[in-house]
Design a protein around this nucleic acid. Structure first.
Length: 224
DNA sequence: TCATTAAATTGTT
DNA sequence: AACAATTTAATGA
């Protein structure tokens, strides 16, 4: 995915948006590029845009009192996020960091609210997305307590390929094992071990800084 | 294009 | 956590 237009074409909520609204989305949404490691936005900033990942990969992260950072979610290309904070008009609760060079779209709050007021499809999409996220986070807590590390890595990885939340088309993700460790809540070494297990099981293919999902269903249910 | 080097990532203990 | 091995990216001949 390279351009905002391509991403809009992939986004489910654009399907029956009126042409005038679509034009407003196109003309007001700003695209910015970020290098690996750069902050897309920081905790505590006023939220004035809905954010879309056109290309690349970002993570939602927060700082534990001890100083350790915790990754709450990885957001892949094709996904929009941050609607919760826009709706509530609150300060941003987490840091957003680019893990790779990334192209990020910022849709101004006014445009976002315009869509809310005029499009039933948009409201439906948000409802589905919020519900999907809720399910994912509940699942994360459950898995964190019930599953062994191999399975946790499998779920964390599968979570990045939720077709509704992340309508990117490719079954690959460029992510280091260290970052996957932050996401799964385990050490890099354990991720390395787990990836070997998952590869032997025929669920993924592991390359340098790149993981290809071969069997998404198998990944989701691994260890259950 | 090829060789050299530094940095990032991975494999292992 | 530490160390070695491997891959990538950048540089210059």
């Amino acid at each position: 995915m390279r351009s905002l237009d391509e991403m809009l074409a992939l986004s489910p909520w654009t399907q029956d948006i009126a042409p005038a609204q679509m034009e407003r989305v196109r003309s007001t949404t700003v695209v910015r590029e970020f290098e690996a490691g750069a902050y897309v936005c920081r905790r505590g900033e006023r939220v004035n845009a809905w954010i879309g990942v056109i290309d690349g990969l970002v993570k939602l992260t927060c700082l534990a009192p001890s100083g350790k950072s915790v990754t709450l979610a990885g957001i892949t290309a094709g996904s929009w996020f941050g609607e919760g904070s826009v709706l509530k008009g609150e300060l941003r609760k987490y840091d957003v960091v680019a893990l790779r060079g990334s192209q990020i779209a910022f849709m101004p709050e006014a445009t976002f609210r315009g869509l809310l007021d005029t499009s039933l499809a948009f409201n439906r999409f948000l409802l589905m997305q919020l519900n999907e996220r809720l399910g994912q986070f509940i699942g994360m807590v459950e898995h964190d307590r019930l599953l062994d590390p191999d399975a946790r890595v499998a779920r964390a990885l599968a979570g990045l390929f939720n077709p509704f939340l992340y309508p990117g088309s490719e079954p690959q993700i460029q992510i280091s094992q260290e970052e996957l460790g932050y996401l799964a809540g385990t050490s890099r070494q354990r991720v390395n071990q787990a990836l070997h297990v998952l590869e032997k099981a025929g669920l993924v293919k592991v390359d340098y800084s790149l993981i290809t999902v071969v069997d998404l269903e198998g990944l989701r249910s691994f260890g259950a």
